[in-house]
């Protein structure tokens, strides 16, 4: 008579290839956020400007008398992405503040990193959650507006004349999402309290803007815009969309500041995301 083993049975299914395990973290995070009604409400609200812009595009193409008032230009798309920045802020705070802080609070980092999951995969998974949501309120509606423009006019003239718009929307959205996500993730790794992280993030964004406001008035020009994170983003956006720059700060300087911020965030994450805390 065969005797069946009643003990622990090891997993016999397929294993995902190394390097793709970040997707598990990302999927779990996305699912968690979609299970929150308040978040879905926030996401829906963040799409309201898209509908306003869609109406603008419709009117500009269908009502010739109003076309001059609501004219659609490459700046329309840049303005739309910039106006989404308040939603980007709220979504970054809502989704991002607890991404690593909550894991640190629950001592879950040790558990995650004791699995066949590298630190890079863990960080990439977390980054993917936030970037995914940010692109959902910037790049995705931005590109959809471009598609709507083509659909409403029924011709490709505007698209052909502004071929740079497609890569511009994509690139600017990615830069926005990457900068804000990596900054938030780095801050989230610094504390165990998501509330503390949220306020730190607000401080980084708004204090830099307030300091710029003071310096601009004191110096009398906009050369010092590089101290403000939102101003740097605007400057890079203007360069990408080929519209006149808003500040005197050269756009490569703004781009360097943003790149520096991403790099600094990466360094912070590298030091803080560890299974075991290193006390020095």
């Amino acid at each position: 008579m065969p005797i069946h083993d009643q003990g622990y049975r090891h997993y016999g299914g397929q294993r995902s290839a190394p390097g793709r395990r970040w997707a598990v973290i990302a999927r779990a995070g996305v699912r968690t956020m979609f299970s929150k009604r308040a978040f879905i409400g926030l996401l829906l609200l963040s799409w309201l400007p898209f509908f306003v812009r869609a109406v603008q595009i419709y009117i500009s193409t269908s009502v010739p008398q109003a076309a001059a008032l609501v004219q659609v230009t490459p700046a329309t798309f840049k303005d739309f992405l910039e106006q989404q920045s308040i939603w980007v802020f709220f979504i970054t705070v809502y989704v991002g503040a607890g991404l690593i802080a909550n894991d640190r609070r629950a001592n879950a980092l040790q558990i995650y990193l004791s699995k066949p999951l590298t630190r890079v995969e863990y960080m990439f998974g977390k980054l993917a959650i936030l970037m995914g949501f940010l692109l959902l309120v910037t790049g995705v509606p931005g590109l959809m507006l471009l598609v709507l423009q083509i659909l409403f006019t029924g011709e490709l003239t505007f698209f052909r004349e502004n071929l740079h718009l497609l890569p511009a929307i994509t690139l600017f959205s990615v830069i926005q999402a990457l900068t804000f996500s990596s900054t938030m993730l780095a801050l989230s790794s610094l504390s165990k309290s998501s509330r503390y992280v949220a306020i730190l993030y607000a401080a980084v964004i708004f204090m830099s803007q307030a300091i710029y406001g003071v310096l601009r008035q004191v110096t009398g020009d906009t050369n010092v815009a590089w101290v403000s994170l939102p101003a740097n983003m605007t400057q890079v956006g203007s360069a990408i969309f080929r519209v006149p720059l808003q500040y005197k700060t050269p756009w490569p300087v703004s781009l360097t500041v943003l790149a520096g911020l991403i790099l600094a965030s990466a360094v912070v994450l590298e030091r803080r995301v560890r299974g075991v805390e290193i006390v020095t």
Binding site: M207, A210, I211, G213, V214, V218, G220, D221
Partner: peptide
């Protein structure tokens, strides 16, 4: 020198006012 604002030269008092408005009050 401190810049001219609305025809008048910016003063230390004005800078303090700016900091009160933009940094303390609004942030």
């Amino acid at each position: 020198q401190l810049p001219m604002v609305n025809g008048a030269r910016m003063s230390g008092t004005a800078i303090f006012g700016l900091i009160i408005w933009l940094l303390y009050l609004r942030f």
